[in-house]
Design a protein around this nucleic acid. Structure first.
Length: 468
DNA sequence: TACGGTCACACT
DNA sequence: TAGTGTGAC
């Protein structure tokens, strides 16, 4: 599944910034009494105290894990504060965390190309900024910033010494360093500066990795947490990867990683070096085989995309065990709720970002009554997206009915639904400037079934004739 | 499948 | 294309 990209030839400076237990920090900012205390964020709490989705470092000290339920967390850490995710329309509402994530992205995007990788992670391409710093102001910056940079962890530097910070300062300023290391040192200073700004302006701490590509930056951003950063000089890459367990590598946490272990006996990334490119390609196909061969050597050409906003919006909910939905009426009720939220989210995307979504997709999970038939999957269905809550609800229900027909294959058995979700995708920018939003929408919609917003979502423009 | 709700992306 | 599957957090 992963695929190799042609690698850049000139050295780049890439950072991966990762917010520390982000949802907890958002709640701690809202309620400062929670600061410094064992805290976790849970969603729902009627069943075993709810599921943990973020855990503070104090709570982790007690052995609290993200895979636990609230009750279990209370058992290992009786003093823990469990904060509930807001609920709206009878489902978890993550908007608070989404907007907090946007605050952070707005700051991080100021120094170079910035890619929102998830609600609490970004990649930065700091190559140009680092080169510029190197050109005019060799590693020497305001003491406040340099102090933060001096706390960096440099992979391959002796870290146990009491002299650590002195060593790091020396590394950052080393005049005999090669060009690549000097760029990384500048990157480390820039990232330190950004992290200080994030803290000052949002009260959130984050950790970061700085390296020559995304893969390495991502690998180390979580190595020293919380509120720290880690640098990967080229000279330390091979030793680092040699002992890295395959499962730690992004993309190898699942079946592919298991296959490497079980089928090839590969336990660490270093073990991969003993396989030829041809052997890996034979085992996993040209694309994945080539990718594996490269990552074993620390090579990754994946670029940082210039994207601050998500490419799709989805709303979903699971109905586990006895909560499963058993008839069309309850499905309709929940679908209406999900579509209501989705409609609100794409409407604010349109208003705030001038972006429009073109496809509506419905996903569901289903089982047939009393039967052990786990194999048959409920098919996903999609259609052109029409703006307006009512339209979305209507279309989503039609998609469900169509999917249900395929699922049942004209058998007359009962069914239950254990999860539902609706997603808006194929989101495009509306070119700013000339003419109105409507002209664009009408002119560029699929001919067969145009995604024309209803009058409640986008005002009609009477001056506009029919589309060309 | 009682690890939820969202995301991205490769493949066909 | 629409739909499937994997993987991450």
């Amino acid at each position: 599944m992963p695929v190799a990209r042609p690698e850049q030839q000139q050295p780049r400076v890439i950072a991966h910034v990762d917010m520390d237990c982000f949802y907890v920090q958002v709640e701690q900012r809202r309620n400062p009494a929670l600061r410094g205390q064992p805290t976790a964020v849970v969603q729902y709490n009627d069943w075993k105290g709810g599921g943990l989705i973020a855990v503070s470092y104090e709570a982790r000290g007690f052995g609290v894990k993200r895979s636990m339920r609230g009750d279990e967390a209370k058992r290992v850490c009786p003093g823990i504060n469990l904060v509930q995710v807001p609920v709206a329309r009878d489902k978890a509402d993550l908007n608070l965390y989404r907007s907090a994530g946007s605050e952070v992205v707005a700051i991080l995007a100021s120094k170079g190309k910035c890619e929102r990788a998830s609600i609490d992670e970004v990649y930065l391409d700091l190559t140009d900024a680092a080169k510029e710093m190197l050109l005019q102001a060799p590693p020497d910056s305001p003491e406040e910033i340099f102090m933060e940079a001096a706390k960096s962890n440099i992979l391959g530097l002796p870290s146990d010494a009491s002299e650590k910070e002195k060593n790091v300062r020396a590394w950052l300023c080393r005049s005999d360093a090669d060009y690549q290391d000097k760029l990384l040192a500048c990157g480390a200073i820039i990232v330190a500066q950004l992290r200080v700004r994030v803290l000052e302006e949002t009260q959130f701490t984050c950790s970061a990795g700085i390296a020559h590509n995304k893969m390495l930056a991502k690998l180390v951003s979580g190595m020293h947490k919380p509120a720290q950063q880690t640098v990967v000089p080229s000279s330390s890459v091979q030793d680092f990867l040699a002992s890295l367990p395959v499962k730690k590598m992004k993309q190898l946490g699942g079946k592919l990683g298991s296959s490497l272990q079980d089928d090839l006996g590969v336990e660490t990334i270093g073990d991969l070096l003993s396989f030829t490119k041809e052997k890996l390609q034979e085992q996993y196909g040209v694309n994945t085989g080539t990718w594996l061969w490269k990552i074993a050597r620390g090579i990754s050409g994946e670029e940082v995309e210039d994207r601050l906003l998500p490419k799709s919006h989805g709303c979903g909910k699971t109905f586990p065990g006895p909560k499963a939905l058993k008839n069309s009426t309850s499905v309709k009720g929940w679908l209406d709720q999900l579509c209501d939220e989705l409609s609100e989210r794409i409407q604010s995307d349109l208003n705030q970002n001038k972006r429009i979504a073109q496809t509506l997709t419905l996903h569901a999970r289903a089982s047939k009554e009393n039967e052990r038939d786990l194999a048959k999957k409920f098919p996903s269905k999609s259609c052109p997206l029409r703006y307006g809550t009512g339209k979305i609800q209507e279309d989503a229900m039609k998609l469900f009915e169509s999917g249900l027909q395929d699922f049942l294959e004209s058998q007359n058995t009962g069914w239950i639904i254990t999860s539902l979700s609706v997603t808006a995708s194929k989101i495009f920018d509306i070119p700013s400037g000339t003419s109105s939003i409507l002209r664009y929408i009408k002119g560029h919609s699929p001919a067969a079934s145009p995604a024309i917003p209803d009058s409640s979502s986008v005002p009609e423009d009477p001056s506009l004739g029919d589309v060309p």
